[in-house]
Nucleic acid binder design. Sequence first.
DNA 1: CGTGTAAGGAATTCTGACACG
DNA 2: CGTGTAAGGAATTCTGACACG
Lengths: 101, 101
Amino acid sequence: MSSYKDKKVITIGIISELTGLSERKIRYYEERKLIFPERTKGGTRKYSFDDVERLVDIANKMEDGMQTFDIRRMEQKKLSKKELRERMLRGQLNAAFNMRK
Amino acid sequence: MSSYKDKKVITIGIISELTGLSERKIRYYEERKLIFPERTKGGTRKYSFDDVERLVDIANKMEDGMQTFDIRRMEQKKLSKKELRERMLRGQLNAAFNMRK
DNA sequence: CGTGTAAGGAATTCTGACACG
DNA sequence: CGTGTAAGGAATTCTGACACG
C-alpha cells in the first residue's frame, strides 16, 4: 500500500517541530541506526509520518533511561518475534501439507 | 480528525516532485487562490498530501483548457452544492420538527 | 493568461568538531 | 553516551521583474 504514512517527504526542521526533538537529537538517532530518512539529490534528509511516531517512541524510551543501544536491540527483538510468528505459521502449514502425502 | 492528509508539512521542492508541476506553477496557483499553503516562521511554504491531490486535480483541469478563474469558480460551486445539501437536510429536519408541534 | 528564467537575498540544512560529563 | 553549539559551506526557497504570447 502506498500510504501517506510511510512516504518520506518531511524535512528535519518540521520533524523537529512535530516531535519536539532538537535536530541534533534526530540526526544522532540516525547515526545510532534508530531512524532511516531518505535524502534529496542535494543531501537534505526526508522523513515520513511513520518516522514522527517512531521518534516519539524513541524519545519516550530515552526518557525512561534506555540507551540507544538498548532501543536498537529492542527493535531487533520485535523483528525476531515477527519472524518467529511467521516461522510458526509456516511450520503449521508444512505440517498440514505433509499430512496430506 | 487530525489526519496526516491535511497536515501542512511538505516543502515546495518535494511537492514539485510529487505532482510533476514546476515550482513556478505551484506558486502561481496559490496567487490565483487555488491552493493555500501555510508558512514557516521564515516564510517557507508548507503543503499537505491533500494539497498534492488538489494540485494534480488542478493540473488536469488546466490541461483540459480550463483557466484558473474557471477552476476557482468550480471550487466555489462545489461548496455551494455542499451548502445546498446541508440546507436541504436542515429544511427536512425543520419540517419534521414543525409537524410535531 | 500562464509560465519560464535570471537575480539577489534570506531561510534551511549539512558535516565535522569541540565541549561537557 | 547523549546533546548543545559555533563554523563554514551548500542546498532550498522567496520575491519582484522581465519576457513571450
